[in-house]
Design a protein around this nucleic acid. Structure first.
Length: 687
RNA sequence: CGCGGGGUGGAGCAGCCCGGUAGCUCGCGAGGCUCAUAACCUCGAGGUCGUAGGUUCAAAUCCUGCCCCCGCCA
């Protein structure tokens, strides 16, 4: 087998937050792939970095009253710690705020300029006069400009009530979410990359079938490549935390311009440490492969913009972009209030990383499906498959050979070892195409065979007969070899177990070929537990620990300036209804007192909070309320509200809403839930 | 008819490209073992593979229509 040179990247985590178990789907998936390639004897370099630039970092640093550099340095340390805790082993972990990255940004920019890809266009944006900064779409809220909609409290880019798309400047009554100030319109020149110039290339590159999963290629074809590609706005005017554009003073590269270049910069740092030239990896004709692993949310950056940038600057194009889905927990998006938004560091306080690595591996396939973490299944797989299946083979044989050694010649085992050895190629192919679930499936099958073999031979019975010592040794030599073979196959997933197996049998696992031939004659150490069983309690503690604490619930954004009370504005905004309604009309509406028993933010929804309401007794209602802008879930749990109990259930994007919570106010921070005076109990009707 | 993905025993999935007795994990039932971290082994119940047609000696697998679910946020 010829040695491949493989460069692998995982997406750069943003320096604005900690690593959580959702991120880990990607880093574990990638780390497994890298470890597999290394075990196979290829040269494989695993690179990553913190993504540090952009408005969000700048704002956060301001709020924390410290420099951006201090903020990102702390976060980088934390990220590195978290990754190490999960045995994610980068060859270099850089930062996009590095000199290496600045230099490469300059270089690619120069190429883009020379190629005539850059143009300048005025962009009119809202500007926050208090904060002194332009406002990205997500930092502006206001009323939808669509005259037929006029939904309040919408973000600057589109309305999720009517789907209307607009620019932030179109919003009616816009408000900066940073300061609460009314933003002003200001115009500034931005720099754009003309991607359309590379349309033909992108069409060919994305559709050629090797670089992308087929779903992704189809998606791009349908969504983007069918029409001219818009110019990509890659600059932001000061103030902005990032690199200033050399030939355009006062303008900075947009974070998504310098982030992927961070892959190169990280390569460069790694190369420089070894006295190598980074161009042997990134030059157009470099003899290597480049693999990017990313989540589906950043598909277009890596499959359109990035290849375009590389093409335009004569660099090596990605061999493959591996795209994975999101993590759900218990079938739902991760939720802070439910405690399923588990940070890496929190997980490590309670659980061994091997469980999660194994669990994710057992669920990961080559496609973009979301991966669901079911806590029961998690405990089950760790205990039944990992401990009860794999480790148990060693556990039930090693003690008969402790202090002795494996047989000098491998005994007849009915073809078990050969059978498993023959599986190596198909297992390798599964790893290669990121089909880890098939790897785990196959290994599970091998475990079952090994365990059945031991059951049949029952060395523990023979061990009671002194004259059968040699037979016991033979059986256990077979068992331990089958164990080792499986562990070799699982080494990319479970590096620590591989280490332990190496120590147990006095022969470290270093190569994929270690699974091809049995180990003979080496001393067997006294058996020690390799992996503890998981207690459900540990998982529960982790979930509890992940729920927000009182002090931890900082409301994002600042309070709006208070409105003068009892003014005419409210009536002006929503005039009285002229039509009269009868008492019958009113009684059709079944208003009830309800208690909020649980509340959680709906991931992906800008306005929604998911509520579980109790109407007394066992009766529960699931209600989605558009009140996220005014209430945190924590503020809601326990309180009484008034709900329209006989409202026809409505299917929403995130689930079925079985009622409606009554509130006053026009939206945004101006939402005021109705609640009864004390003494009312859930279930009572409002008359 | 927006685009893409999908509908297989109670749950989660594989098989589909390259048609030929429907498989895995969990759960459930019965038995065995008692070496092992209450781990392990054997047997069993449970599916007309969304639906209606078509092609074929043969369809979960190929073709067509329909129904349903999920994703889509430059």
């Amino acid at each position: 087998m010829t040695q491949r040179r493989i460069l692998v990247t995982a997406a750069l985590p943003y320096a604005n937050g900690h690593i959580h178990i959702g991120h880990l789907v990607e880093y574990i998936q990638t780390d497994i792939w890298v470890r597999f390639q290394k075990l196979r004897g290829h040269q494989c370099v695993f690179l990553c970095a913190d993504d540090t630039h952009g408005t969000a970092i700048m704002i956060r640093a301001r709020q924390e009253k410290r420099s951006e550099e201090a903020l990102i340095a702390d976060m980088r340390d934390a990220h590195i710690r978290d990754f190490a805790g999960f045995d994610i082993d980068f060859d270099n972990y850089g930062s996009t705020n590095s000199e290496a990255n600045r230099g490469l940004c300059h270089r690619l920019w120069g190429e883009l300029r020379r190629g005539g890809y850059i143009n300048e266009q005025p962009v009119t944006q809202l500007f926050d006069p208090v904060e002194g900064t332009f406002l990205a779409d997500r930092f502006v809220k206001g009323t939808c400009p669509n005259p037929e909609c006029q939904a309040p409290n919408q973000y600057g880019d589109s309305c999720d009530k009517c789907g209307h798309t607009h620019s932030p400047a179109d919003l009616v009554n816009p408000v900066s979410t940073l300061s609460g100030a009314t933003p002003e319109l200001r115009s500034a020149n931005h720099l754009f990359i003309n991607i359309e110039k590379l349309h033909g290339f992108l069409e060919e590159w994305t559709q050629s079938g090797e670089h992308l999963q087929s779903e992704v290629a189809n998606y791009l074809k349908g969504h983007f490549l069918g029409e001219p590609l818009r110019d990509w706005d890659v600059s932001r005017p000061a103030p902005y935390f990032g690199f200033e554009i050399p030939d355009s003073p006062g303008n900075y590269w947009y974070v998504w311009f310098d982030a992927p270049i961070g892959y190169m910069a990280s390569t460069k740092e790694w190369c420089e440490r070894r006295g190598e030239n980074w161009a042997t990896w990134w030059h157009r004709d470099a003899n290597c492969e480049i693999h990017h692993f990313i989540g589906k949310d950043i598909t277009y950056f890596h499959t359109l913009f990035w290849p375009a940038m590389l093409k335009a600057s004569d660099c090596k194009l990605p061999t493959k972009v591996h795209i994975h889905g999101f993590l759900t927990v218990g079938g739902e998006k991760m939720s802070k209030s439910k405690g399923t938004f588990v940070q890496a560091a929190t997980y490590l306080k309670y659980l061994d990383p091997a469980y999660l690595r194994y669990y994710y591996a057992s669920k990961l396939g080559p496609r973009l499906d979301d991966l669901d973490l079911s806590l029961d299944e998690f405990v089950d797989k760790a205990n039944k498959q990992l401990v009860g299946g794999v480790v148990n083979i060693a556990s039930r044989t090693a003690k008969f050979l402790g202090g002795k050694s494996l047989c000098e010649t491998y005994p007849a085992d009915g073809g078990l070892f050969l059978f498993a050895a023959a599986a190596h190629e198909s297992i390798a192919e599964s790893y290669e195409r990121c089909d880890y679930q098939t790897v785990i499936r196959t290994c599970k099958e091998l475990c079952d065979r090994a365990n059945a073999f031991l059951d049949e031979k029952a060395p523990w019975t023979l061990a009671k007969q002194p004259d059968k010592a040699e037979e016991v040794r033979q059986i256990c030599s077979i068992g331990l070899n089958l164990f080792r073979q499986i562990v070799v196959y699982l080494t990319p997933v479970l590096p620590r177990l591989a280490q332990q197996a190496g120590e147990l049998l006095s022969a470290p696992i270093t190569r994929w070929e270690d699974a091809h031939s049995p180990l003979t004659g080496t001393p067997v150490a006294n058996f020690q537990h390799m992996l503890k069983r998981v207690e459900l309690k540990q998982v529960q503690s982790m979930i509890e620990d992940s729920k927000p604490t009182e002090e931890g619930t900082v409301v994002e954004g600042l309070a709006l300036p208070s409105q003068p009370t009892d003014g005419p504005e409210a009536l002006a905004k929503e005039p009285l209804v002229a039509d009269l309604c009868s008492i019958d009309d009113f009684t059709k509406i079944d208003l009830r007192v309800a208690r909020v028993v649980s509340a959680s933010a709906v991931e992906g929804a800008d306005k929604l909070v998911q509520l579980t309401l109790s109407l007394g007794g066992e009766l529960r209602r699931n209600v989605f309320a558009g009140i996220k802008s005014a209430y945190t879930p924590e503020q809601l749990v326990g309180r009484l509200v008034i709900v329209v109990a006989n409202l026809a259930p409505r299917k929403m994007r995130f689930g079925v809403s079985e009622g409606m919570v009554c509130a006053a106010g026009g939206g945004g921070q101006e939402i005021f839930l109705l609640s009864p005076d004390s003494g009312a109990v859930p279930g009572q009707r409002v008359h």
